[in-house]
Amino acid sequence: MARRKKIYEGKAKILYEGPEPGTIVQYFKDDATAFNAEKHDVLDGKGVLNNRLSEFFMLGLNQIGVPTHFLKRLNMREQLVRSCEIVPLEVIVRNYAAGSMAKRLGLEEGQALPRPMVEFSYKDDALGDPLVPEEYIISFGWASQQDLDDIVALALRVNDFMSGVMYGAGIKLIDFKIEFGRVYEGEFMRLIVADEISPDSCRLWDIETGAKLDKDVFRRDLGSLTDAYTEVARRLGVLPANTGAPKPTLIN
Rank of each mutant, 00 (worst) to 15 (best):
M58F: 14
D125N: 09
G106S: 06
L105Y: 15
D41S: 15
I92L: 14
P133G: 10
G65R: 08
V132C: 01
G99N: 01
W142P: 08
M117S: 13
I137H: 11
N75V: 08
S83P: 00
M76F: 02
R52I: 10
G60Y: 10
Y96Q: 10
Q63D: 11
H69M: 02
F70K: 11
N95S: 10
K72I: 08
V87Y: 03
V93E: 02
V48G: 11
Q79G: 10
L131V: 11
Q111M: 09
A98N: 03
Y96V: 12
I86M: 15
E109L: 04
V66Y: 05
F57L: 07
E85P: 00
Q63R: 15
G60R: 13
P133Y: 08
I86P: 05
L43D: 02
K123A: 09
S83Y: 14
R94M: 08
G60N: 11
I92P: 02
R73I: 04
P116C: 03
G110T: 07
R104C: 04
P67G: 05
L71A: 03
N51P: 06
N62V: 09
L49P: 10
F70Q: 05
G60L: 05
G65S: 13
F120N: 00
D129G: 05
A102D: 04
A102C: 02
R77F: 06
K123R: 14
E109M: 02
R94C: 05
R115V: 01
I137K: 07
G106K: 12
V91S: 00
L71R: 08
E109K: 07
F57K: 10
I92V: 15
M58C: 12
C84K: 05
R94H: 09
H69A: 00
G110P: 06
E134V: 13
M76G: 09
V48T: 15
G128N: 06
D129F: 03
G47I: 14
G128C: 04
L127A: 13
M101D: 01
K103G: 03
A143V: 15
V118N: 07
F70W: 09
Y136I: 13
Q63A: 14
R82N: 07
Y122H: 13
D41W: 02
P116H: 03
M76Y: 08
L49Q: 08
L131Q: 10
K123S: 09
P67N: 14
D44H: 12
G47S: 13
F120E: 00
A143N: 11
M101A: 06
M117W: 01
D125A: 10
F56S: 12
Q111K: 14
P88V: 09
R77P: 01
D44Q: 13
L59W: 04
F56R: 13
V91C: 00
S100I: 04
E119H: 09
I138F: 05
D44N: 02
D44A: 09
L127F: 12
L61A: 08
F120A: 00
R82L: 14
